[in-house]
Design a protein around this nucleic acid. Structure first.
Lengths: 250, 250
DNA sequence: CGTTGACTTGAACGATATCAAACAGGGTGG
DNA sequence: CCACCCTGTTTGATATCGTTCAAGTCAACG
């Protein structure tokens, strides 16, 4: 999937309104009053991006912020020889962009189809200064992201391949909207579509594609998970999967 | 080095004043006015901790914040079987504590002797609300920490042992005060004392003690670094060390 | 001196990477 | 409709880096 150039911010669709926004209560704008949301709405530009669309490039200038309305965005960092690490996964209601810097510290790329609510950087920063409590909310978001990234450091530095995969599947299942539980499946067996390819999972966990594939095949063979195609996954044995996130190596 | 219980916040030394504080301009309090610093000074309690002193415990309640005046603090996370990962290293002028949470998301432990300037949580949060621009500064700190932790995720997930060690030594050399360049050594050959033991370096880099030791011995044998004892390190060939932080594996 | 703790070194092992090939599904053009 | 390719994934065989286990060194200290 070839990545494309950063999209043009100018072309936009203003038809969508904040008061009908699905992530309104969870996103940072949830901290705003009715009047403030109206002001924010005025500077909002909606974007619909195809999978693979580059949103931000490492070390390059960014001139906007965004909320994710739907879809999944990956934040990545690369070494010179092409090795890649996903350093963050962003889901609907997450905030995109690095305040107080002109250059992005990472790449951001649409993983699925993505619907963004974007704001011009300067305009947005003006509103942040003006709106009581808005920066506070963004600060809280950032602290949560920092906690999550430290959790991930523990995984990257100290967990085995099996533990990494189990942790990843549970993390994703928590954040993905579940697809309709068609059939007579047990409700304790959530089904969802993996947003990431095997290669992307590998880049997230610090593994290779092959190791990811083998680990997933393993879980399938043990009937801990089920797969319909490559992407649709059912957790068949949740307790066992939770166990696998941390195996005692005494 | 057995870790001790969290210290008692009540016993304190008020003799020290902010206006003579060595990290005043670099720390978060640098954003404050003269009058505000005076107010902050009133609630500050100074602490001098021995190496190994536990400062915060994962999942346990914290009732204070602190600035590091001198020394090094490690933030760690553990798995049930004892595997440990250092998820942050804090140096003088860094801020310690997790705003807007009652429970610490990690352990914090003094690595060297540490001089802290502590503040009661409730009192401090009151001043944060009151002082224009103080929260803003803390927000910026947090964003920088997040950037650093993502940089570290790239290292943990994708770098080889050699690259990890080289990156670590450069990172530490940047943040440690250099010891006097005694002798006729080239000024481009900085000397400093490693704040971490081999075991701690291993926990920081997601390696074992033995691998760390071997990698350091390697660098010494290649005359890229020099060692006086186990802790005092001289960078003999800076360009070569920088090269090693990222080796092309094409 | 003998003990202790931190570090180093060596040898063998094993988890994960690497290399290579086969496989599956989806689209395209004949 | 089928043959073909294209891309993503799985599977197998082998190699390798880093771990594990086991001694051995060294300096500090009682």
């Amino acid at each position: 999937m070839a990545t494309q150039n950063t999209f043009d911010l100018a072309t936009n669709d203003r038809a969508l309104r904040c008061d009908t926004c699905g992530v309104r209560h969870k996103a940072a704008c949830g901290a705003l009053s009715q009047a403030e949301v109206f002001r924010l709405n005025e500077i909002a530009h909606h974007k619909f991006l195809p999978p693979g669309q580059m949103i931000l490039s490492d070390h390059s200038e960014m001139n906007f912020f965004a909320n994710i309305i739907s879809g999944v965005v990956k934040l990545t960092k690369n070494l010179a020889d092409g090795r890649q690490q996903i350093v963050g996964l962003q889901f609907p209601s997450d905030f995109l962009g690095r305040p107080f810097r002109t250059e992005s510290p990472y790449n951001a790329e649409a993983v699925t189809e993505v619907h963004l609510c974007t704001y011009n950087k300067a305009q947005f920063e003006r509103l942040v200064k003006e709106f009581e409590g808005f920066e506070h909310r963004l600060f809280q978001n950032t602290l949560d992201e920092l906690d999550a990234s430290r959790e991930w450091m523990l995984l990257l530095g100290r967990k085995s391949a099996t533990e990494k995969i189990a942790s990843f599947l549970l993390m994703v299942s928590k954040r993905m909207e579940m697809v309709g539980c068609k059939g007579a499946v047990n409700p304790s067996q959530p089904s969802f579509t993996l947003p990431l390819s095997r290669a992307e999972i590998a880049d997230f966990l610090g593994l290779t594609i092959e190791t990811v594939s083998r680990q997933i095949s393993n879980l399938k063979a043990q009937k801990i998970i089920g797969l319909q195609g490559n992407r649709v996954l059912t957790i068949l044995d949740l307790p066992r999967l939770v166990q696998l996130t941390e195996i005692d190596h005494d």
